[in-house]
Design a protein around this nucleic acid. Structure first.
Lengths: 251, 251
DNA sequence: AATTTTCATTTGTCTGACATTTAAATGTCT
DNA sequence: AGACATTTAAATGTCAGACAAATGAAAATT
C-alpha cells in the first residue's frame, strides 16, 4: 500500500481509498485487524491524525469498526443488511430530494420494481407477511390518522409485500425505491376519499397475495401506480394554480 | 444542534449524525456553507480534530465537499447520480461478497429486477442503447476474450438494457443488482459453448428490444436466468466434487 | 483456584503550531 | 479608469505531542 504525497487529493482520502480497495479486493478479510493507528501512520508516512481521518471515512461506510483498549483497533466489518439498508435509504432519499426527480419518474421506478417482487412474494409469503399487510390496512382505515402516519403505514405495507419474496437481495435493493418515496408522498394531503381508494387497492393486493396469485398482485400494483400518479398530479395542479393566483394578486 | 458528551458513542460520530440529520431533514440546503471548523468546534464544545473527523465521515458519504482557502469551507453537496452509483455498487458488492449470499438468490433478484425494466426499455430505448447492446454482443463473440472481459461486457450489455428504460431512478437502483453480480459471475469459467448460448440469448434480447417487444425481452431474460443458474450449478458441483476428491487423497 | 491488581496497548480527545490554498482587498502602473 | 501585480486574511490540510479512557492479558494476592 503506497500513496502519492504529491497528488492533489487529501492524504486521508488517498489512504482511505487504499484501505477500501484492499477490503473490497479481498486482501483484508472480515474481522481482520488493521495495524494500529500509530503503525499505519508509520507505514503511510503521515501523522496519526491523518490516519484517523482516513479511518473515520471508512467507518462512515461501515467498512470498519473500532474498539478501544489493548488488543483493540480497527477491524474489517462484516457489512450487515441492516447497515446497508440504512445507508441505501438515506442515499436514495437524498438523491430524490436533491435532484428534482419528478414524482412520476420515482413512482414509475418504485412500482416497476415492486411488480418484480409480485410473483415471488405471492408464491413465498408466509402468514406473518400477510398479517402485517392486513394490520397496516386496518391502521390506514382509521379516521384520525395523520398524513405522515398514513404514509409510514403505506411504506410498512409495501415492505411486507417485498419481504414476502424472501430474497434479502431484493429487499435490500427495493428498500431504496420504496422508502425514499415517503418524503415525496408526504407532500400529498390525502382526503378521506383518497385513503378509501388506496385501502381498497391494498386490500386487493393482500387478497391476491393470500390467494398466491402473483398476476393479480401485479395488476393491483399497476392500478395503484396509476391512482397515485393522478392523485399527485391533481395535488400539484392545485398547488400550481394557487401559486399563480397569489402571484397575480401580489404584483 | 446539541450533543451528549456522556453518550457512549464517539463525539465525532454524534456530530456527524447531527449534521447529517440537518442535511437530510432539509435544514441545510444544497451548496449552503457550514460554519468553519473552528466555529463548529466552538458550537459543539469540542476540539477542531473532533469536528474534522465528523466532517470526514460526511465527506465519505458525499454529503459535503470541502474547499480550501479564504471563503472556502464545507458545503452541502448535491448528491450526483454518479456518486450515488459508485457508492451503491461498492456497498452491494461487499454485501454480496461478505454475507455468503447464494448465487441463486442474487441471480434471482438481478433478473427479476431487470425484467421490471424490460417493458419500459423496449418502449423507450433509443438507437444508442441498441447500438451498445449490439456492440457488446460482438465483443462477447470474440474468441480470445478473457472470462473477466466477457463478464464486464455482459454487465455493459445489461446496463444498456436497463438504461434504455430512461428512468434514472431505476438505473440507479438496478446498478447495485447488476454490477454486484460481476464478482460472482467471475467465479465461473465460460466454455466456448457456454458463451455461444449466452450470446444467442443476448441476441434474442436485442432483437426483442429492437422490435420494441417488451414481453419478448422479459421471456428472453427468464431464459437467460435459467441458463445462468444451471451453468453456475454445474460449476459449483464440479468444484465440490474436486474438493471432496482432493480431500480424500490428502488425508 | 478464584479473585483482584497491575500494566501495556490502543483508541478518543485536546492543544497548539505551521503549511497551503484561495479569493478578496489593496496597491501600482499605464 | 482599467488592467495587472501584490498583499493579506481566512480557511482547510497536516503535524507533533500530550493526556484520558477503555480493555484485555498477565501478574499478584487471597
Amino acid at each position: 500500500m503506497k500513496i502519492d504525497p504529491n497528488s492533489s487529493a487529501d492524504l486521508s482520502a488517498q489512504i482511505a481509498s487504499a484501505i477500501r480497495d484492499a477490503i473490497v479486493g479481498g486482501k483484508l478479510i472480515v474481522d481482520e485487524r488493521l495495524p494500529s493507528e500509530a503503525e499505519l501512520a508509520e507505514q503511510f508516512e503521515v501523522s496519526r491524525s491523518t490516519v484517523r481521518e482516513a479511518l473515520k471515512r471508512l467507518a462512515a461506510q461501515s467498512l470498519i469498526r473500532t474498539q478501544r483498549g489493548a488488543f483493540g483497533g480497527a477491524f474489517v466489518n462484516r457489512l450487515s443488511y441492516e447497515d446497508a439498508y440504512r445507508g441505501h435509504i438515506t442515499t436514495s432519499t437524498l438523491l430524490l430530494g436533491m435532484n428534482h426527480v419528478s414524482f412520476d419518474t420515482a413512482c414509475e421506478a418504485r412500482f416497476a420494481l415492486e411488480r418484480a417482487c409480485a410473483g415471488l412474494s405471492a408464491e413465498r409469503r408466509d402468514a406473518d407477511h400477510l398479517a402485517t399487510m392486513r394490520a397496516e390496512i386496518v391502521r390506514q382505515a382509521q379516521p384520525g390518522l395523520s398524513d405522515e402516519a398514513f404514509c409510514a403505514s403505506d411504506v410498512a405495507f409495501h415492505r411486507a409485500l417485498v419481504d414476502g419474496a424472501d430474497n434479502p437481495v431484493m429487499s435490500y435493493q427495493l428498500a431504496g425505491a420504496v422508502e425514499a418515496m415517503q418524503p415525496l408522498m408526504n407532500m400529498i394531503t390525502f382526503t378521506a376519499r383518497n385513503r378509501e381508494e388506496i385501502v381498497r387497492l391494498h386490500e386487493l393486493i393482500a387478497d391476491a397475495a393470500e390467494a398466491r396469485n402473483g398476476a393479480a398482485v401485479s395488476t393491483a400494483l399497476t392500478e395503484l401506480e396509476g391512482y397515485t400518479k393522478t392523485l399527485a398530479q391533481s395535488v400539484f395542479d392545485a398547488r400550481a394554480k394557487g401559486q399563480s393566483d397569489s402571484a397575480g394578486t401580489e404584483r
